[in-house]
Simulated assay, not measured.
Amino acid sequence: MTFKKIAIYGKGGIGKSTTVSNIAAAYDGSTFVIGCDPKADTTRTLVGKRIPTILDSIREKTNPDLDDIVYSGYNNTLCVESGGPEPGVGCAGRGVIVAMKLLDKVGAFDDNPDLIIYDVLGDVVCGGFSVPLREEYADEVYIVTSGEYMSLYAANNIAKGIESLNGKLGGIICNCRNVKDEVEIVTEFASLISSKVIGIIPRSDLVQTSEFKASTVVETFPDSDQSNIYHDLIDTIMDNDNFSSPTPMNSDEFEKFFYSYVS
Rank of each mutant, 00 (worst) to 15 (best):
V183T: 15
F129N: 13
V179P: 10
G170H: 02
D123Q: 14
K168T: 06
L165C: 08
A159G: 08
V120D: 02
E135C: 03
Y142F: 15
V141W: 06
I172P: 07
C174A: 04
Y153C: 06
R177F: 14
E140T: 08
V141N: 05
I173H: 04
I173S: 04
S146F: 14
I172T: 13
S146Y: 11
D110E: 15
I185V: 13
I117K: 14
A138S: 06
L169A: 05
I173G: 04
Y149S: 01
D114C: 01
C174M: 04
M150I: 12
D181M: 02
A154E: 13
G127D: 02
N156Y: 10
E182P: 12
E148N: 11
V179F: 09
A138K: 03
G161E: 11
K101F: 00
D123G: 09
L103Q: 11
S164C: 01
E184C: 00
E135I: 02
G171C: 04
Y137S: 04
Y153H: 14
D181F: 09
D104W: 01
K168M: 07
L152R: 13
G170T: 01
Y149H: 07
F129E: 14
Y137I: 08
N156D: 00
S151L: 03
I172Y: 11
K101G: 07
D139R: 02
K168S: 11
P132S: 00
C126W: 15
L121Q: 15
A108N: 04
V131M: 08
G161R: 13
G122Y: 09
G147Q: 06
D111H: 12
Y149K: 07
K180N: 12
M150L: 15
N157T: 03
A155F: 04
D139M: 01
D123W: 13
V186L: 13
M150Y: 12
N112V: 10
N166F: 07
N157I: 01
D111K: 14
Y153M: 13
N175W: 11
L121C: 03
L133S: 14
A108Q: 09
L115Y: 10
D104C: 00
V144N: 08
V144W: 06
G171Y: 06
G161W: 01
P132Q: 04
M150A: 15
R134W: 01
S151V: 02
L121N: 14
V186F: 02
I172K: 14
G170I: 07
V144P: 04
I162N: 05
T145I: 01
N175R: 11
E182M: 10
V144H: 06
K180C: 00
A159N: 02
I143N: 02
D114V: 00
K168D: 13
S151A: 08
N175M: 09
I172A: 07
D110L: 12
I162P: 05
E184F: 05
N175Y: 03
D123V: 12
I185D: 11
N157Y: 00
I172M: 12
M150G: 11
D114W: 00
F129I: 12
E135G: 00
